[in-house]
């Protein structure tokens, strides 16, 4: 009698750590989970997609090896050859190109840099100029911390005053693709808007971090809706377990989403985090929590692959 084969693990695995609500513990989970993966012998990369306020690197202190700017394209109008036909305005899906006072105006804060206006302009009066909106920095974490498999940290950082978060997130993830580690962990920004979508798109599994408060539950429901829309298998990490009053476990049971880890409400965790240290190392139960969480994530992926 033959033994059924274990479902093959994907050659490369991408795990997104996300939440609807901010401040639930995404960074705490993502940093320690990335270490659990690398210590388990899997070469890993952690991509900090919280480009408005990235801080994974503060905890993991990677050697900074390189930085690259993130640029988006912006149309520039040549008024001398423009015939004011309005084709650029009509094709713009974001209302960023307007005709005012007998001239074409571009509003950079609305422009997504798609180039549709350039293509629509028959007199070829529109050129594109690149504009910096942020940068991506990457480097390797000390092997003393990660073990021989190694961990790279990629940080997407939006420039102050800019709004093109998704462009920075896409660039950070592209750097992760170049690094091509066996496991990529994405630390997503909070919320369920464009930035969160850019961070979790095409992941293999979604780890949703929440807390048992009414806000935590409400925003978890939004995040679950997003995960469903994107067709991702999901597991919930219940952080600050033991506080609040919202019954996250009951909600998850109703929705058929497993609670794959519980991290208790514990003052020591807050102290460790506030001092920029790592829960996996500095809390007596940290190694067990994140080792088990990593196993649970792999089991979720295997289960989804078998389906």
């Amino acid at each position: 009698m033959s033994t059924p084969l274990a479902p093959p693990r994907p050659a490369r695995l991408t795990v997104a750590v996300a939440s609807g609500k901010g401040g639930t513990g995404k960074t705490l989970v993502a940093t320690s989970l990335a270490l659990a993966a690398s210590r388990g012998g899997t070469p890993a990369a952690l991509i900090d997609c919280d480009a408005d306020a990235p801080n994974d690197a503060l905890f993991l202190a990677p050697a900074s090896s390189d930085t690259a700017p993130v640029e988006v394209m912006l149309p520039v109008i040549d008024a001398s050859s423009c015939v004011l036909c309005g084709a650029c305005r009509d094709v713009c899906a974001y209302g960023a190109v307007r005709i005012l006072g007998g001239q074409v105006m571009v509003f950079p804060e609305l422009c997504h840099g798609c180039g549709a206006c350039v293509g629509a302009c028959t007199p070829h009066s529109i050129a594109e100029q690149s504009r910096r909106v942020g940068d991506v920095e990457w480097g390797r974490v000390s092997p003393d911390l990660t073990g021989p498999a190694g961990l790279d940290v990629v940080t997407g950082r939006l420039d102050i005053g800019e709004v093109k978060t998704p462009a920075v997130i896409r660039a950070a993830r592209a750097r992760g693709t170049v690094l091509a580690r066996a496991v990529t962990i994405l630390d997503a920004p909070p919320g369920v808007s464009c930035a969160a979508v850019a961070a979790i798109r095409d992941a293999d599994v979604l780890v949703l971090v929440t807390e048992p408060t009414p806000f935590g539950l409400h925003d978890l429901e939004l995040a679950v809706g997003l995960g469903r829309e994107m067709g991702l298998p999901m597991g919930v990490v219940l952080n600050r377990d033991g506080t609040g009053g919202a019954d996250i476990a009951a909600y998850c049971a109703r929705e058929g989403i497993p609670v794959i880890a519980r991290i208790p409400f514990d003052r020591r965790i807050a102290e460790i985090y506030a001092e920029g240290r790592l829960v996996i190392d500095d809390h007596p139960e940290g190694a067990a929590w994140f080792g088990e969480l990593w196993s649970s994530v792999l089991a979720l992926v295997a289960e989804d692959g078998a389906r």
Binding site: Y94, G95, A96, R98, I99, L100, G101, F107, L110
Partner: peptide, 15 residues
């Protein structure tokens, strides 16, 4: 009811 850019669009309309 525009998601964004209402001020600009209204300026264009009155212009």
């Amino acid at each position: 009811n525009a998601l964004q850019g209402a001020g600009i669009a209204s300026a264009e309309l009155v212009s």
